[in-house]
Amino acid sequence: MPETPALDLARELIRRPSVTPEDAGCQDLLADRLEAAGFAIQRLRFGPVDNLWAVAGKSGPLLCLAGHTDVVPAGPAEQWSHDPFAAEIVDGRLYGRGAADMKSSVAAMVCAAERFRAEQPGHPGRLAFLLTSDEEGPAIDGTRAVMRWLAERGERIDFCLLGEPSSSHELADTIKNGRRGSLNARIRVRGRQGHVAYPQRADNALHRLIGLLHDLTAHRWDDGDAFFPPTSFQVSNLRAGTGAENMIPGDADAVFNWRFSPLQSAASIQAVVCDYCGRRGVDPHAIEWRLSGEPFITESGPLIDAARRAIRQCCGHDVTLSTAGGTSDGRFIAPTGAEVIELGPLNASIHQIDEHIEAAHVDQLAGVYYALIGALLGGS
């Protein structure tokens, strides 16, 4: 298969084993290219994380192309059909860790920006890149930290396009125009250990914990709305006992998560949990809470309109708006008032052995991004 600009760059990025929080030189490669295209470069290192902020243009609305250069671990290399960091093309498919999530999108964005800047160097508005090596990990020193840095300087993003793999069945068939919130909790219920034959002398911590989990599982949180499915509650981990058959557990631990719509908030969920704790004799202060992100939504606006036009122009079909899936770094950008969408390649193989995408999709995606940039910043 002949090399094309975006595909060639995607392969260069995949060959760099940038497992979170390592960047492995990806951002240096991209910074050199963006600087040559007239972008002012800011390298931002927070903790162990490399971040890149690059801006071109003098004034006007700011369109930010955002993504991450880090990838999840490849797992056992022997289980892959092709070396996960060799970026091989076989039967028209590009294989490698990050091929779908999301080095191909980053490559497509950079090539689209280079083309746009070359053809319209005096374009109205500003074009920016926000790249991090901390999206797949704790997400503390990456986009979250960069957004604080921007706020301190009075910089505001008007439109943000993330290259997350949003497509389901064909390229650009789905745009993520929002995400559910994610709230995590860990709890340890303390009782009193004892012999199963003398339950009156013990306090079974697991029984109380199971009662609480039953309440939370049976609770109807909401019915969702036009953009979001109902809030969901899932138990991910449960531990109690010593392994002995004749012992009542004195401690019981659980880890659980809510994916919630804007009809809920972290505070409203916590209030319900505390109420159930009181009914079950569980100390609510024994819960450790961690909010991964609040829900966000871009219902309409110039960014969605531009994306629709670009997709019709380049792919010949309409697009579905969706809020399904996990979280993304959009949760750190949307609260500033920016319109935020995610548009990228097919997501069927992300985080899997033999992650791949259709090689031809990389340059097709660059064409979509180019058309979108032009639609927003006064181009074609």
Rank of each mutant, 00 (worst) to 15 (best):
M247H: 07
M247A: 15
M247D: 00
M247Q: 15
M247R: 13
M247C: 12
P249G: 08
G250C: 10
D251P: 02
A252N: 08
A252E: 07
A254D: 06
A254W: 01
V255C: 12
F256K: 02
N257G: 04
W258M: 04
F260W: 04
S261M: 03
P262W: 06
L263M: 12
Q264L: 02
A266I: 06
A267Y: 03
A267I: 08
S268A: 14
S268M: 09
S268N: 09
S268F: 05
I269A: 01
A271G: 08
A271C: 11
A271P: 00
A271M: 10
V272T: 15
V272C: 10
V273D: 01
V273S: 03
C274H: 13
D275S: 14
D275M: 06
D275R: 15
G278Q: 14
G278H: 11
G278M: 09
R279C: 06
R279H: 12
R279F: 04
R279T: 13
R280H: 13
R280M: 05
V282R: 03
V282K: 05
V282Q: 03
D283E: 15
D283S: 12
D283G: 11
D283Y: 09
D283K: 10
D283C: 12
P284V: 10
P284F: 09
H285E: 15
H285N: 13
A286R: 13
A286K: 09
I287Q: 06
W289Y: 12
L291T: 04
E294H: 09
E294S: 10
P295K: 01
P295G: 05
P295L: 05
P295Q: 04
I297V: 13
T298L: 00
S300R: 15
S300G: 09
G301F: 05
G301M: 08
P302Y: 01
P302N: 07
P302T: 09
L303T: 04
L303A: 07
I304P: 02
D305K: 08
D305A: 15
A306H: 04
A307C: 14
